[in-house]
Nucleic acid binder design. Structure first.
Lengths: 331, 331
DNA sequence: CTGAAAGCGCTTACAG
DNA sequence: CTGAAAGCGCTTACAG
């Protein structure tokens, strides 16, 4: 319709060398017809998909929500699409989505694997690079971006001990390497303080954490403090405390990971480790692009710092709620 | 490698008619080579993309987070992918993503447009059906799924009036048709009660709502109650109330839309309209599939019911916090 | 049931 | 700068 060859139209759309004259003709025809190039055809022919895969356990978890937004923004800036998958911590779904990624011929993958899959990843062959986020595989086997989990858990323990707590129970998720690292950090810090460790692994869900707290309260004396390894479990823990009619930190101190919005709004606030989630997403994309440029580069582990946010819930036992530090509403 | 034609391999992958013998050979070869079909090629040749587009303003808004999860689950069940886009309420980004959707040759689109784009949609031609969610275009021009916004806003007003409030300020977003409908419902209900209307439109963000409340408090007497049109604004409103050192409902009553997790955890809870978000997502997918089956079907508007969740924040003025209904932690 | 052949809509050497 | 031709990896009538 523009009276030019398909090759010329293609050059107009890919900013190839075209005379101004023909370019105008093509653009006029494009406007008139509403023509849009077919991305499937382009991908097939050009052999690059300009697509980033993102596999997380559940987009409704605020950590992954924020992460996905950061990944999408970075992809948008690089003129790439992202295909997002939720696995619900189900290894079978993960395997399925990994296959899908191969069928999509994605450029690269950002992935928060379960422990089960993380262990198998090394034995699989993929045609694209993978950067793990939040959760690592066997040491050194994959690029990873996250925080220093053991250190962060230690910060929490140190803080609770400084507030006078001695019996500090740790509840940790049972599906991710991250929860193990946090457990180990908890155990190491307790040992450093000469305190006995009391911890267990649970499904990383609110219900499980609430049930475990309830069980322990029914069994006897409440511990001085309880800390948990993610935002979902912190929610369950908080609900359990309230349902038991206890008050923090008067009757029990609590703390956990993930500075979710509600943690600062509730009573005098909940003490948490804040992760630089958006930065983790950006760093993962950066690392992915670097890996694409330099495939032979040695495997990297990027650990950003977690930040301890002290609020009322972790104060000394016997302290009234009002005596805790005020929730910080000013950020 | 299996000693068969490409056509036969294709038939194995698409469950076409193949003898058990050849099927086994192909499957053995697939296992040995790790072969995966190329989706771009398949889409190009078969002329269907099996892809659903989803365009929302910001995935970090819990409404859209939950919506996207419901859409993805439904897509997964239908063996389709979804491509997700965030527009930040920016019409230029919306236009860009609509172009992308055409280039992807998506099967259908689920879309929460700004008012600006919703008005233009009728004049544009797309090769795929569109179902709007949460926000409608000009009446009858597009399929829509959402709640009855005017009715829901009326529920909130009726409830506040029943609690003895008279001067009920309404703060509404200024980018969506939804906020307009909620405004109109507010105005109509106030009129029904013989009360003067006091409302304004703001950017649908926490900061804007907080600033507006602060401005009004500085200007004179606080109103009896303030209601807002979404979760972000409710957050800003709540922060503003706390920052002003006020207590709900003693000094001021507040209420709003979206039953976000923190609204039930805060003090004695915030009164809200709960939207059946996951159901909205499923209904939108159902409507999309129906439209694909019956393109000539008359345009539909599906309105699900919003549910009034009464909590402490909307009680009578002068009531102490503790006198409000207890927050419901039991769901 | 099976294979040879055509063709989806692009991009990319290649020649001019 | 421009076009004719080949080909990316599939699927799908068509014949057998």
């Amino acid at each position: 319709m523009a009276g030019v060859s398909a090759a010329t139209v293609s050059r107009v759309f890919t900013n190839g060398p075209v005379s101004a004259d023909l370019k105008n003709k093509v653009e006029a025809a494009v406007k008139a017809t509403g023509y849009r190039p077919n991305l499937s055809a382009r991908r097939l022919r050009s052999q690059h998909s300009s697509t980033i895969g993102l596999i997380v356990s559940d987009i409704r978890n605020p950590f992954f929500t924020t992460l996905s937004r950061a990944v999408e923004d970075a992809a948008y800036r690089a003129d790439m699409r992202v295909v997002l998958c939720n696995t619900d911590e189900n290894p079978a779904r993960e395997a399925m989505y990994l296959r899908l990624m191969q069928e999509e011929r994605i450029t690269g993958l950002i992935y928060a694997p379960t422990r089960t899959m993380a262990d198998k990843l090394g034995a699989m062959a993929f045609d694209f690079p993978i950067v793990l986020v939040d959760r690592a595989g066997p040491s050194g086997s994959q690029d990873v971006v996250g925080i220093d989990n053991a250190e962060a858990a230690g910060l929490l323990v140190d803080h609770l001990v400084a507030q006078g707590h001695r019996h500090i129970v740790g509840l940790f998720g049972n599906t991710s390497s991250t929860a193990i690292e946090r457990h180990d950090g908890h155990a190491a810090a307790m040992a450093r303080h000469g305190l006995a460790t009391d911890a267990c692994f649970l499904p990383p869900m609110a219900e499980a954490a609430e049930a475990e707290l309830t069980r322990r309260l029914a069994a006897g004396e409440p511990p001085d403090a309880v800390m948990v390894s993610n935002g979902q479990m912190l929610l369950g823990l908080y609900r359990g405390v309230r349902r038991a009619g206890l008050e923090t930190p008067r009757d029990i101190a609590i703390a956990g990971f993930d500075n979710e919005i509600w943690t600062e709004l509730v009573e005098s606030g909940l003490t948490v480790i804040e992760q630089p989630v958006a930065e983790i997403g950006r760093a993962a994309m950066d690392l992915l692009f670097e890996r694409l440029r330099t495939p032979e580069m040695a495997t990297r582990k990027v650990a950003l710092a977690g930040r301890l946010v002290v609020r009322g819930s972790s104060g000394a036992r016997g302290t009234a709620r009002e005596a805790g530090p005020q929730a910080d509403l000013g950020r």
